[in-house]
């Protein structure tokens, strides 16, 4: 298991756990992250479970008249959300690779996920 990233300042965790378009959870978690960084909070954004489906670059959301969640996610670093992780076990289960992703997402084990959440000031799950 690789070392945990150094997270020295207080931070909140936002877990996004749902696939991108069947519910509004993916959009809502993204908007929550942007609001938190807007007031200077440090946000750790984690794709958990079905949430890793949001990382599929080839999603063609225009077919269902929806803006691409992937494109919105790729703008996260521009809004100071730079600590972005994805649950390795979910990536493995759903055969999703982080290689094609155009923004930095680091895989974390379930144990690391727990450690990151344990040290957070708040954890929100969408």
């Amino acid at each position: 298991m690789s070392d945990l990233p150094v997270l020295q300042n207080p931070y909140i965790v936002i877990q996004t756990t749902q696939a991108p378009y069947s519910t509004s959870d993916a959009t809502d978690s993204l908007e929550a992250a942007l609001a938190a960084t807007n007031i200077g909070m440090q946000v750790v954004y984690i794709f958990v479970g079905d949430g890793v489906y949001q990382l599929l670059k080839a999603q063609q959301s225009t077919l269902i008249s929806h803006k691409s969640i992937y494109k919105k996610l790729s703008a996260l670093p521009m809004f100071d959300v730079e600590l972005i992780f994805a649950q390795t076990s979910a990536l493995t289960t759903y055969h999703i690779s982080l290689n094609d992703i155009s923004f930095a997402v680091s895989p974390i084990s379930d144990a690391q996920l727990v450690q990151i959440c344990a040290k957070a000031t708040q954890v929100l799950v969408f």
Partner: peptide, 18 residues
């Protein structure tokens, strides 16, 4: 209110229950 109002309250040593 905006979402930021919620996070401002969290910043104020509130315990969050979701």
């Amino acid at each position: 209110v905006g979402l930021t109002a919620y996070f401002e309250a969290l910043n104020n040593n509130s315990v969050n229950i979701q």
